[in-house]
Write a protein that binds this DNA or RNA. Structure first.
Lengths: 250, 250
DNA sequence: GTCAAGTGTTTGTCCTGACATTATGACCTT
DNA sequence: AAGGTCATAATGTCAGGACAAACACTTGAC
């Protein structure tokens, strides 16, 4: 059911400092998001596309390639490049609970339960890749939405990486603070499980003792591969679940 | 603490049908995995590397670029390319419980509880992107390891996509069967949560009623963007948790 | 002594050109 | 009519070159 190639209005601005391949990728992505490029439709061959835009084929390929990596396009040799034919849209992202709640239209609120500097327990030091007795900052927060508790979050950070005033932590999310401090988050190792609530957790979160909790442990790395944060969080399973988009790399 | 560029023994075989950039990427990846390329070490500049291997710079860049995408390397303009400086190694993968258990050295066993064809419930049809009353195959399996139950898995697949004989399902994993049938898995939308076990689930899995269970719902897409599987699984939280590696895309 | 300007190195972007590989459909043969 | 063969069209791979931009370091001025 392959249709004929779509004729899109595309153009690039050579005076802009934005790379040409990136301009093209943005326009194509937008055309896909808005539905101007329908799922399953062919993109037209790379050489002709390059000629139409006054670009070279490698540049066009770079633009298309980035969208293929995101899972928006599919290339098939001998056939052409077509828009992926499904509801798959958003690429995988390193999610932060704060941004998740904001995106869901909720109003996240945070209470800092404690914040202290001390020597790292062995497990934390190992996860962060610091010396066994190194100093780390430990922050415990309670995150709520609509005045209902959602999660208890325990975070450990290497000392000196970042100032964490309590008022800033109560006003926004940890990831936002890190980004604002010039730290570029790059990847995270995450483990998700479940267990029954202890008495203290039940009390804090407003659940019954033994209620199912969703647990997450995460080590986050910046673009140089330094571990910048180790988090150990518990969520009320009745109020929260994780959504991921996984991409397989060939 | 940037060290001097490492001089690695690298070579490519031009008679091989394996692309040159891929050969190089494999060798570099292996050198990183085995530690011959230490974290933080510089790779040596691209032009010199290309000259040493008798390749062009774009080819070398393509190899390095693929490893940067995987999060194994970091490029810094004016500095060079260095091995990521952490224990982050494995890229994100679409995990299958069967392969997970195998990798953990366990012996996965499967019992097919039921397998039938029928019209899809609305929620399943919507997830798979098929017509509301379309026919789907529904398979319910119990997965165990070391004679202990681990998970109950319910899967729905479009009719005609794949033959699913019970003996094949008991001998291997669903993803392996799909791959063997020529289906290239590409991405998945996944949602992970937790809840308390119902009486039936507790009985089947050997847990107490109300015990915490880890739940996962997943829609898997192939390389053409077709939804090929919708799964709704529950895991004993005491025996299983998910591990992910998330990468942030710039 | 400190800060600013300049210089060199390295990756980032972009170009042109060529050939290989593969999927599709038309054509021809049986 | 059914099947295999071949041309065509598209992406996949690779080469070699050129200039731009960013970073680290040195040099110079104050």
């Amino acid at each position: 059911m392959s249709t004929t190639p779509v004729h899109l209005a595309l153009s690039v601005d050579r005076t802009s400092p934005v790379p040409l391949y990136f301009q093209l990728a943005l326009q194509l992505e937008q055309a896909i998001e808005t539905g101007r490029l329908e799922p399953g439709s062919l993109l037209g061959n790379e050489i002709e596309l390059a000629a139409r835009l006054g670009l070279s084929r490698p540049t066009v390929r770079q633009a298309i390639g980035s969208l293929v990596d995101k899972g928006l396009l599919v290339r098939r040799r001998g056939v052409g490049t077509q828009v992926v034919h499904s509801q798959v849209k958003r690429p995988l992202e390193l999610t932060s609970l704060y941004d998740d709640l904001l995106a869901a239209g909720q109003q996240p609120a945070t209470r800092v339960l404690s914040s202290a500097t001390g020597t790292a327990p062995a497990a934390v030091a190992a996860a962060l890749g610091v010396a066994p007795q190194a100093e780390v900052v430990t922050v415990v927060r309670l995150r709520s939405a609509h005045a209902e508790p959602i999660a208890r979050m325990v975070n450990h950070l290497p000392v000196g990486l970042l100032d964490l005033p309590a008022d800033a932590l109560e006003a926004t999310g940890l990831y936002r603070l890190m980004r604002a401090a010039g730290i570029t988050l790059h990847s995270a190792r995450q483990s998700v499980g479940a267990r029954a609530a202890t008495a203290a957790e039940a009390e804090l979160l407003g659940e019954a003792v033994g209620a199912p909790l969703l647990t997450m442990e995460r080590v986050t790395f910046d673009d140089r591969g330094r571990a910048v944060e180790y988090g150990s969080h518990v969520y009320r399973a009745s109020r929260y679940s994780f959504a991921f988009q996984l991409l397989v790399r060939p």
